[in-house]
Design a protein around this nucleic acid. Structure first.
Lengths: 152, 152
DNA sequence: TTATTAGTGGAAACCATTATCAATTACTGT
DNA sequence: ACAGTAATTGATAATGGTTTCCACTAATAA
């Protein structure tokens, strides 16, 4: 076993941030979550996990902000009034996907189909936009909205 | 000049909604706006316009909700803590665009470049997703995030 | 016109997020 | 290991965008 470092730890260290227990726990929740928890959902998950010492909601929000800044976490608004979060890469590497949102029940599908074609076009678009509008582009967001079979 | 009906009026009528003065005013603000006003900005614009009778903020929110339901208006979250709105079609037809958002100052560029290529791929993706996940897809959202030249 | 129903808007409530600040904790150099 | 120092935490209070309530008004139907 080599010294397999968790990829986000390097980023945090480099930014001069401490690897505190709350921060690591929050990332841990995100790793073990297969959807897009809100700050409160993360808070509740941590409460369940560590009965004794609760991590304050304030800390959750603060930490998520930091992680978003560092690009470790992505931030989404699916229109249900709360911000939702997900890890930008899976625990052991990249796993890019986009979202399909049901306007009826709020159900969200993470799809990876078509990602390659999309990615190719997005890269091209990104370069074009960056040049024309003099932006440095860091990331993009694609969502499709509609109704799932149950809400049809 | 034929009987050129405002396209949204048909949609509203068909939905059994009344074409009241407040509703028409709100759409009017959207028509004459070249950016993405929030509910409050629309409220203030109307206040400026009609000194006498103010249209309540409640009505603005309610009406926007309805217009979003009907697909007359699109709803966006650019991450500045308020929901923003724009007409889904220009006053006399279609004018599809996507958004480029500066994370520094919040400046937003509406771009139409690359839209054709994007559209072609999106249509294809949309069909594929609809079939595979059994969704009926109504619309999509694409945003690029980065830093503009001033915030670089 | 009257009856009926849809729409309005001020005030109060709601609730996700942010600011405050005293107490705690992680890292540094010794 | 230890103390010094600056970053971090978290309970509480405040903020602010959005919704709810509900009595009043305006539009359509009979």
């Amino acid at each position: 076993m080599g010294s397999k470092k968790k990829w986000w730890q390097g980023k945090m260290k480099k930014a001069g941030l401490r690897l505190t227990a709350p921060r690591l726990s929050i990332i841990d929740v995100l790793i073990h979550s297969d959807d897009h928890p809100s700050a409160e959902e993360i808070y509740l998950a941590l409460r369940r996990q560590y009965k004794k010492h609760t991590i304050g909601l304030t800390t959750i929000y603060r930490t998520l902000d930091i992680l978003v800044q560092l690009g470790i976490v992505y931030k989404f608004d699916f229109g249900d009034g709360r911000t939702r979060y997900e890890l930008s890469e899976g625990p052991n590497g990249f796993h890019h996907h986009h979202h399909l949102v049901c306007n009826g029940c709020g159900h969200i599908v993470d799809y990876t189909d078509f990602i390659d074609e999309e990615k190719e076009l997005l890269d091209r678009t990104e370069k074009g936009l960056a040049k024309k509008y003099n932006f440095s582009i860091h990331h993009h967001l694609i969502q499709f909205y509609g109704l799932c079979e149950h809400c049809r």
